[in-house]
């Protein structure tokens, strides 16, 4: 099985174009699981490990924008400047798997897999992030909401490489919360990201629908209400979040619990974000 190991983004893009059926390998924490279970039988693998352009991130103070290369692992989002620029992303990153998984797993891989339970995705949805793709025919950029098209489905073409995501720096409180049935190393049963950006509150939910769900009704409820939130308002905010969700019953949980959980998480995030210390 040929493994293509490009050493620059240009070469990677060339290779992706000449091998559109190649399976792109970043941290391998999803891909290798699928290979082990025989769900995927790659004929060709395109490994991104040595493409340095994908492994960096920048915080542009002038445009107040963060750009994260697709091959940046979760461990780099947990601490330091990136975590200060995007606290919710740091919180989401800290919930991913174990330290080993966070060291290997990347944001590009989370986007490539596009599971409704992907932990970085509600943050990207709430921050209205732009996903950057590249192929030999050039760059494409699209809002995350357009990129994710269904459970484990996205708008990437076979010859495209996800180069990264960009989004505004947090300019208000933001947080991420995720329900799982143990204290670490667990796939999300329900999750929520709330970002109180200066342009308005943004609430996005994970694991409660085929895609990440933005809750415009809930956002509208609190859009013009600065200051502390009482329990009744938080409950109403949660109720609107639950109303926006469309969860299913499966072996991890029930639709009813998931709907309940996102309402609680949304309400709590709102109170957490508006509490005066």
């Amino acid at each position: 099985m040929p493994v293509l190991i490009p050493r620059s983004l240009d070469v990677a893009v060339e290779m992706a174009s000449s091998h559109p059926d190649a399976h792109i390998l970043a941290g391998g924490t999803d891909l290798m699981v699928e290979v082990n279970f025989n769900h995927r039988k790659p004929e060709t693998v395109l490994a991104l490990r040595h493409v340095d352009e994908l492994r960096g991130w920048t915080i542009d103070a002038a445009t107040r924008t963060v750009h994260i290369g697709s091959a940046v692992p979760f461990s780099e989002m947990e601490h330091g400047a990136l975590s200060e620029a995007l606290p919710a992303l740091a919180e989401a990153a800290r919930t991913v798997g174990s330290p080993q998984i966070r060291a290997a797993g990347t944001i590009g891989g989370n986007l490539g897999t596009c599971s409704p339970a992907g932990d970085s995705l509600p943050v990207l949805a709430a921050m209205e992030a732009t996903v950057h793709l590249r192929s030999t025919s050039g760059e494409r950029a699209m809002p995350f909401a357009e990129f994710m098209t269904g459970p484990k489905r996205n708008a990437r073409r076979g010859d495209e490489i996800i180069t990264g995501v960009s989004m505004p720096i947090a300019d208000g409180w933001q947080g991420y919360a995720k329900v799982g049935v143990r204290n670490a190393m667990v796939i999300s049963v329900a999750s929520a990201c709330l970002a109180l950006q200066s342009t308005g509150p943004r609430l996005a939910l994970g694991s409660v629908g085929p895609v990440i769900i933005r809750c415009h009704d809930a956002e509208a409820l609190v859009a013009d209400r600065p200051g502390a939130v009482d329990a009744a308002l938080a409950a109403e905010f949660g109720r609107l979040a639950a109303a926006a969700s469309s969860p299913i019953d499966d072996h991890r949980s029930t639709a009813a619990y998931r709907r309940h959980a996102v309402s609680v998480l949304a309400g709590r995030l709102l109170q957490r974000g508006t509490a005066r210390p």
């Binding site: 947080g175 991420y176 919360a177 995720k178 143990r182 204290n183 670490a184 999300s188 609680v264 709590r268």
Partner: peptide
Amino acid sequence: ALLMPGGSGLTAD
């Protein structure tokens, strides 16, 4: 938070 119910998911205060 890691030692509270919900752990790394930061679900509770």
